[in-house]
Design a protein around this nucleic acid. Sequence first.
DNA 1: CTTTCAGCCTGACGGC
DNA 2: TGCCGTCAGGCTGAAA
Length: 268
Amino acid sequence: MPELPEVETTAVGIAPLLVNQRIKKIVVRNKQLRWPVTDQIESIVKDLIIKTVKRRAKYIVVDLDHGSFLIHLGMSGSLRLISESDILKKHDHVQMYLSNDYVLTYHDPRRFGCWLWSNDDHKLLDSLGPEPLSKSFDGSYLWGLSKGRKLSVKAFIMDSKIVVGVGNIYANEALFSSGIRPNRHAGRISLKRYELLAKNIKSILTAAIKQGGTTLRDFTNGRGEPGYFEQSLNVYGRAGEKCLNCASILREIRLGQRSSVFCMSCQQ
DNA sequence: CTTTCAGCCTGACGGC
DNA sequence: TGCCGTCAGGCTGAAA
């Protein structure tokens, strides 16, 4: 599933072919996504100009000269740039035809994503916490907000009001690297350990983004479909297997409806 | 206020 | 071979 690094790579990858283009038309083939695609979007955005393309959390924000799109890839979404004569695939739900003759095509089998237009601020961005790679996100920030919180530290760092973009894979991995057991109460972890955790979240995400830059998918030949990065995973998806550090058998529990894998011996 | 959890959806996978 | 049940997962909004 698209995690923050995939969304970042997508935004960076498509931006050069979108910015300053005019929208010739939009075709919505299935508007039933996580939320219905904005009504009348076809007529609203015709002939508008794309100003910028950027990422916020796991959203892609496409600013127009009137309003903006908020795109989310959900669990199974992807964007690719194709030509008008290319053959569509099953689950290609939205297409944006550009004046440079490319067609930005949104593909999403599970339809957990969204494609919303607004001429104002998008409400979904209202209560988001800081970007994990920003300066304002660090150990003391996490520690400060964790006071009195009884939920698990894993659920805590996956809460987008606390910090955005830390999905299940990276939460599991960052907690392993930090030697923190995922079910520990958020409010009972020391500043020192939060500093290590914040540092590891940053380094894991940075490495994945960098890998995305080098793997550099080609968004213009129809291969926008990921192709998620080869991830070196220590715990995620490895329940029942040996810890790569100490050879103990990795355990799996569920926290906040998500599978959480950890090493009883390396994570306390 | 905090915390939990249903629900959205399809494809992959295991059992028979 | 195919059918069926189960699971995965980000995120919001309602319930507890």
